[in-house]
Design a binder for these strands. Sequence first.
DNA 1: ATTGGAATCGTTTTT
DNA 2: CGATTCCAAT
Length: 767
Amino acid sequence: MSELPPANSPTTVEDALLDGLTPPQREAVTHVDGPMLVLAGPGSGKTRVITRRVAYLVRGVGIAPWNVLAITFTNKAAGEMRERVSELLSEREARAATIATFHSLCARLLRRYADRLGLPAGYSIYDSSDQQRAMKQALNDLEINPKNFPPNSMLHTISNAKNELVDAEAFAQTAGDFYNRTVAKVYKKYTQILTRNHALDFDDLLLKTVQLLKQHPEVLAELRERYQYVLIDEYQDTNHAQFMLANALASGHQNLCATGDPDQSIYGWRGANIRNILEFEQHYPNAKVVRLEQNYRSTKKILAAADGLIRNNSARKHKQLFTDNDDGDPVQLVTMQDERQEAHWLVERFRDLHVNEKLAWGEMAVFYRMNSLSRVVEDALRDAGMPYQIARGTAFYDRAEIKDAVAYLRVIANPADEVNLLRIINTPTRGIGNQSIKAMQAHSLASNRAVDDIIRDPMSVPGLSNRAQNAVAKFAKMVDEWRTAAGLNEAPDLLLGQQGLSPAASDDEISLRELVERVITESTLEEHYRKDKSDPDQERLANLGELISSAQQFEEDYLNEAAEDGNDAPTLRDKLLALLERISLVSDVDSVDQGEGAVTLMTLHAAKGLEFPIVAMVGVEDGLLPHQRSQNEGEKGEEEERRLCFVGMTRAMRRLYMTSTRYRTIFGQTMPVIPSRFLNELPTDAIEVCDVSEDGDDPFGDDFEPHTSAREQAGEFPPGTRVRHPQFGIGRIITVARSGSHTRARVEFNAAGVKTLILQYARLEKV
DNA sequence: ATTGGAATCGTTTTT
DNA sequence: CGATTCCAAT
C-alpha cells in the first residue's frame, strides 16, 4: 500500500499520482470541475482515491491547497486524510487544505463569524449531558412533569427537528396534537435557555451555520470563493442540514465531490437521509458517476457472504462487487451456550491465531451491537492476559471527576453558562445547598440578572443564609481570580466575538496547563478525591492528573500548529476555547490506535471505515442484530440493521467469525435467544456452521438451508395445537404467521405467558 | 447541608 | 444489572 511509485516508471507528477490505479479510480481522481458522485463499495480504495484526488487537484491541476475543502465523518478520519495527503504533497500544503468534520468546521466558522449572528465568540458547545440538564431546567421552568414528557425523547424530537432545519417557531406552527404542542413549548424554552447560556448543542452547530449562509450572502460568497473544491466523504450519512450546507458551499462552482456507499448508511436514526446519496443525480443532473466495485480488502468468501446479505435490501443501488483476492476460509457461524462461553471461545480462537498463525493482537477486532456487550468480552480478555483496547473516546470525558473539571473550565471561558455554573457551584460540596441555589435562581429571574452576576453580590439575594452568602462570595472570588489569570476579565468586549480584536498573549499570562492545574487544586476537586475513601486506588485522582497532561499535550500541539501558520502568540483564551471545543467533539473511534498491538473492541457503528485481518462479531442474534428497537420502524429499520451487519462483515480481510448464543443475559435477565435472521440470508457455500454449545443441538437444523420449509412448518402447527418447549414448558399455539423466510408463532405457555417464537428455531414438540 | 441507603428507572447505535 | 434519583437520618 505504498503511495510512492517506483522511481523508474512514471516521470511526470500526474503519472505518479495515477500510478497503480484502476480505470474507474483514475477517472475519479482526474475529474476536476463539476459535480461527481463516487459510489464506493467496501474496501474499494476510496480513501486512496480521495487523497490522490486532493493531491492531483493541487499538483496536477495547480489549484491552491487552501481552495480545497474535505469533510469527513470523524476527527480520526480527518487526521488520517491529512496525514496521507501530506505524504503525497508536503506537510505545509496538506495543512493549507481544510480537512475537517462537519461539526468542527461549523464550530470554527461560527467562531469566526460569531458577530454576524449576534453570537458570543466564547460560546459553549453542549454535549448530551449538558443538553439533559438544560432540558430538565426547561421542563422545570414550564412546570411540566418529566414523567409524562421524558427529557430524552424531548431532546430526540427537537434534534430531529433541528436536523430538518425546523426551528422552534416553525415547529410550533406545524404542531397539531397535544403532544407536539407541548414539545413546541419545550423546544422554545430549551432554545431560550441555550441562548441565555451562550451555548449551542451539536445540532445547532449545523443549523446556525446554515442560517449564517442563508442570512449573510456575503459570508457565503466569501466561503464559496475560498472553498472552490468541496469533497464530502460518507455522503450516505449526511442529514438534511449537512446536505443544505454542502449544496450552499457548492452552489456557485458546483465542484462537489460526494463519496460514499448507500449500503453503508447506518445513521438513519440520527437523522441521516439516505436519499441524499441515492438522489444525488437528480440534484446534480450533470453529475459524473463513478462506481468502485472492486474490493481489495476481503477474501472471496467474505465478500460473497456480505454481498449475499445486502442483496436482501430493496432500497438500494446495486453494485457488482468482486475481488481478485484469494478464496479464503468460509465465514464461521458459531453457536455458543451463553455469552461467557462465547467470550471464552473467542479468546481461545485469538490465542490460537496469535500463536500458530503469528498474527499480531492489533490485527484482531471484536464488534458488537451495543456497548454493554463489551463487558463479558473484556473480562475474558483480561483474564487471559491479552492486550485489548476499547474504542470509547468519550469514556474518559464521561467520568464524573473529569466532567466536573471541564465544567469549571467552561464556566471560566463562558460566564453566561449557567448550566455548568450550577453543576459546579457546590461540587465538591462547599455549603451551597439546594435551597441556596433555588434562592439565587429565583432572584436571578426576578431581578433579570445573570446568575454569574448574582454570585458576586450574594448579600442581595433574599432568603440566603449567612453561611451560604459567605460560601457564594468565596466561590465567586475564586472564579474571578481564574478569569483574571486567564486574561478574560479586563476585556469584556471580547465577549462580543470580534475576531482579530483578541490581543496577543501578554508575557505574564499563565499556560493552559497551569490554568487547568490551578482549577483542579483551588476548586478543591483534588483534595476531595484525595480523601475519597470509596476510591482506594485513587483512580479518580489519577484521571485528573491525566487531564492536566492532556491539556499540556494539547497546548504544545496547538502552539506548534499556530507557529506554522504564522501566529506565534495565541492567547490563553484561544487555547482554552480550542481545548473545550476538542473535548466536546471527540468521538469513540478517535481513540483507536491500530498500531497499538492490542485486540480492538468496538460497536458496529464505530467500525465503519476501518479494516482488520480478523474480525469477530458477537451477539449476532434476533433482537440484538437486528435490534429489537429497530423493529418498530418496520422494513426501513430492518434494512438499516442489515446494512449495519454488512458494514461489520466487510471490515474483515481474512477471517470472519459471527457468533450467537442460546441464552444471553441482558440487564440482569437471562433469556433464550435465537441466531439472527440475517444469518439465514448468507449464501451456504460461503459459510461454515458450527455448534459448540453444551447440549450440542444445532439450532440451524440438521440440513441448514436458507428459505426452506416455512410453509411446511406453518402447516405442522395450526393454531390450537398443544406444544412443549424445552424452556417454557407446555403451551398452546395462538397464531402462526409467515414473514420472509421465517414462520412466527405466538404461543401461550401455561407458566411463561405469551411468547413469539420462530418455528424453525424454537424446538417445539407437539404434545 | 450532607450523607448514605433504598427505590426506581430504562435500557441502541453517536457527531 | 447499573445509574440515577429520592428520601430520611445525621
